[in-house]
């Protein structure tokens, strides 16, 4: 794994840029623990101060320091994305590996569920969830719901890898060495699909964070918890652009854009590294 990351870093400019962007965002979010103000309280600093030495990113109309607010928001948003990615990876792995290995009716049953989840329109459904649950809709509940809808594409991908693994001879060797299905899936196949899991995890984070920002901007989440979408929501509520408080909107958008581009580049390069065909193109075939 370390070797792979090193190779990627050396050979791909995209990976270098992505890694720097993600590292910067991570650093910013790590600073959240040092925030001098409680993140949810308002009017702790003078409102509407433009970026200055005292307030690097300026302050909001609600009397919050944009820098520290952004730091906390980034942390919460990343945490949300990571939780969704993690839970949905687990579901995708179980379904994908089992479906690919077992084949037959197990595969058909699991894949019909899978395809149902792929075609469900998510945004209206999430809005519906919000109206039904209202105040009980915490970020964790939202993360759980999105994880339940975010695994289907990747389960299909993992299934296809598992199908090719099943056809390889070492799977048969494991079987005739007396291993059970669970052992074969966990010990023999899982290490082979981990690269796919990592690269799809990053894509999944981009997807879930994007959706969360959309919901928050529209006000369909718990807007009192600082998130990137929440910040933009409040800025809109206070007509920040009209009032000339551009920094309230510009910095969160810049941060989330950096995060998106960074994660996207990492996912793309990791994908290129995993996909033997594109690796073949870069290394080159015989002719």
């Amino acid at each position: 794994m370390a070797g792979a990351i090193r190779d990627l870093f050396r050979d791909h400019a995209e990976f270098r840029i992505g890694a720097v962007l993600v590292a910067f965002v991570l650093l910013l979010s790590a600073l959240a623990s040092f925030s001098p103000y409680p993140p949810e309280s308002v009017y702790v600093v003078p409102p509407d101060v433009p970026p200055s030495l005292a307030y690097w990113f300026g302050t909001t109309s609600r009397g919050q320091d944009v820098f520290w607010e952004l730091s906390v928001a980034l942390r919460n948003t990343l945490l949300f994305g990571a939780v969704v990615a993690m839970i949905s990876r687990v579901i995708a792995l179980v379904i994908g590996l089992l479906s690919g290995y077992k084949g037959g009716w197990v595969d058909r049953a699991l894949m019909s569920v899978n395809d149902t989840f792929i075609v469900i329109p998510l945004l209206p459904l999430l809005v519906l969830f919000y109206f039904v649950m209202r105040d009980r809709m915490s970020w964790l509940a939202l993360a759980l719901i999105m994880a339940c809808f975010g695994w289907a594409y990747d389960a299909r991908l993992i299934r296809s890898v598992a199908m090719s693994l099943k056809a390889r001879e070492f799977t048969q060797t494991s079987l005739f060495s007396g291993m059970s299905t669970r052992e074969i899936l966990v010990q023999e196949h899982l290490p082979h699909v981990m690269p796919v899991v990592f690269s799809t995890a990053m894509n999944n984070m981009v997807w879930s964070i994007g959706l969360e920002v959309t919901l928050a901007v529209l006000g369909f989440t718990d807007v009192n918890r600082p998130t990137i979408g929440g910040m933009i929501y409040w800025a809109n509520q206070h007509a920040a652009m009209v009032a000339g408080v551009w920094w309230w909107i510009a910095f969160p958008i810049a941060a989330v854009t950096m995060m998106f581009i960074g994660l996207f580049l990492l996912a793309v390069t990791a994908n290129a590294y995993i996909d033997p065909r594109s690796r073949f193109r870069t290394i080159g075939g015989a002719f």
Binding site: R168, E169, F170, T173, Q187, P191
Partner: peptide
């Protein structure tokens, strides 16, 4: 099996 290089998991 036929292919000795594929008869054992390359990661184990």
């Amino acid at each position: 099996f036929q292919n000795p290089f594929d008869s054992f998991n390359p990661m184990k």
